[in-house]
Write a protein that binds this DNA or RNA. Sequence first.
DNA 1: CATGAATGAGCATTCATTCAT
DNA 2: AATGAATGAATGCTCATTCAT
Lengths: 196, 196, 196, 196
Amino acid sequence: MNKNKPKYKQIIEAAVVVMAENGYHSSQVSKIAKKAGVADGTIYLYFKNKEDILVSLFQDKMGQFIERIEYETTSRQSAEEKLLTLIETHFKQLAADHHLAIVTQLELRQSNKELRTKINNVLKRYLAVIDNIVEEGIREELFRDNLNRRLVRQLIFGMMDETVTNWVMKDQRYNLEEQAEDVHSFIVNGLARSRS
Amino acid sequence: MNKNKPKYKQIIEAAVVVMAENGYHSSQVSKIAKKAGVADGTIYLYFKNKEDILVSLFQDKMGQFIERIEYETTSRQSAEEKLLTLIETHFKQLAADHHLAIVTQLELRQSNKELRTKINNVLKRYLAVIDNIVEEGIREELFRDNLNRRLVRQLIFGMMDETVTNWVMKDQRYNLEEQAEDVHSFIVNGLARSRS
Amino acid sequence: MNKNKPKYKQIIEAAVVVMAENGYHSSQVSKIAKKAGVADGTIYLYFKNKEDILVSLFQDKMGQFIERIEYETTSRQSAEEKLLTLIETHFKQLAADHHLAIVTQLELRQSNKELRTKINNVLKRYLAVIDNIVEEGIREELFRDNLNRRLVRQLIFGMMDETVTNWVMKDQRYNLEEQAEDVHSFIVNGLARSRS
Amino acid sequence: MNKNKPKYKQIIEAAVVVMAENGYHSSQVSKIAKKAGVADGTIYLYFKNKEDILVSLFQDKMGQFIERIEYETTSRQSAEEKLLTLIETHFKQLAADHHLAIVTQLELRQSNKELRTKINNVLKRYLAVIDNIVEEGIREELFRDNLNRRLVRQLIFGMMDETVTNWVMKDQRYNLEEQAEDVHSFIVNGLARSRS
DNA sequence: CATGAATGAGCATTCATTCAT
DNA sequence: AATGAATGAATGCTCATTCAT
């Protein structure tokens, strides 16, 4: 399997750095190859084409990203705690890797619809994690059950995503992780069973 | 003033259609000119360059979009009603103009950071409208005051935006406006003063 | 006759200034029209096309230029004096009109071969003036008769032209007229009957 | 070094032919590439941009041109002989390469001031060669020393240049080399110490 | 006579991908 | 496996000229 060879990872890492530093439209294959320390042609031994680099990059990085969130949330007891951990871990990971934050929030969104569809497929796994927590909250009778479930998970994702994007657009000048608590509070209240 | 001349509007409308049908990167100036029924060079009598068409398009369309929302919400009594009207009007307008929905949710986001910054400036006005409603809700003692206000308006925008984007990515196959109520409920509950 | 109407002259004068200040390739018809205080379309009531402006400009300005030289040289007695006067008047006129110097020595030479052929036709009259002086010098037994006559007049023109061009290329920073005497001396000696 | 690779030379040669046959303004990069038998993009592996082709062409060709003149004149004994050899070699080389003659005398002069300045820098070396011969003539007490030296070398260059340009403008219909003797005679007499 | 809005042909350059070595 | 020289398609913008008013 190519994916475990060192050059595969070298190219992925180079692509993240090049794209974060130069932007999507200035990330030529030759620039990525140079940063990775390989010849242009070598790229094509590991990736089908340029788009494949970007999709692989996203799969690779988001795979780890989601695994980490799954790992951290599993150890929490309640849905409420799990949700807080999910938000905190989401923010923490992106705050810890500025290059990745720029790439996922800004640069990869400049790709065409086709690439974005593939990216959305990767995100499905994340939406499932969110959904599981919501379901657990409903079972715990913490969350209400009268909202469209598919919608709810999108809303939760949309809130976190918009928060991170704003932080990146503002050049990461303030502390992202501090906002986790408010986002969590908003969501928990939003989903809470109505006052009786 | 060029902006009121008929060709200015023709070109804007053509740009929306061309971009919705062909995608951002296949929207050549010549294609827009042809669809608008003018010569290529005529474009440049009304717009500084290609980017200026897109910025103008967004300002023009979002200007009307926001005005409509301002108009509809003003007549409502409470912050809660205003918020519902805002969400409904937001969804309704995009549901009514499929081309515009594709352009604002998918295509224009493929632009570079510079254009996206200009787009964000236009959106500030919308964020202010949202903020005013939140503030009113706080005065009415309907909404709580213990959340970061800048964050709250972003969260609300992010929820609506993600909802619309998903609907567009799913090829507008379901009814967007039906989701307004759940989004509204989520937000109102999310901001509600904590149970006492 | 169009050529005596005031707008004809306005356009010619505007063309000289615009070309001297902006260079040949940045001298758009619209710029000339603006400087002349007329509409773009008006240009075409007085000139067949853009090239016609430039040819007319050259004919007009060089016509006066040569007339002045003819006038000044006629009053001189000997061929030697006439030649000095010709060189001095040539240099003096261009030194007195910096715009014209730039246009004739640098900008108009960027035109294509066709235009330069027309320009050469205008210069024929000047070459004839030079030739007459050379002929007179031969008759006076001041100049020798063993050189190709067509060549001689070209050489004399080439010397003056190169001198002026260098002065313009050096941004007219030194005194052009001071060089007339040396040029004259070179030519008179060059044509002198061999020592006996 | 790119300059010694065969494609570099192919492109330069193609540029000379294309420019001579089509004129400066009709010398598209694609035309040069086609004539050189390479792809358009290959041009940019060897040259920074279109102007760089033209500057390189001039440096390359004029470098050889001047070297040849330096080589031929060195073997002559007196300044007078050297000057004749210089003129003859100047004329001979351009007469032997009709394409190059058209390009240097007509087409390259249509370039903008910036390119012409670069061209003038290349010519400085030629002016130095002329100057050395003049200096030698003065030391030999063949030439006089009472003329501005910078002016003299310009005048000599201007005479040869004008002669060649006229020959090219007349479609090279007569024999250029035959004129060397008269030009030489004019210059030698022009610079001769005054009769005593 | 005069206007100026409209026209549309024309071109340098980039960069993802290939393939002979 | 790795290289990197070569490829060639694709496009935003300018500006001389026209012509309806």
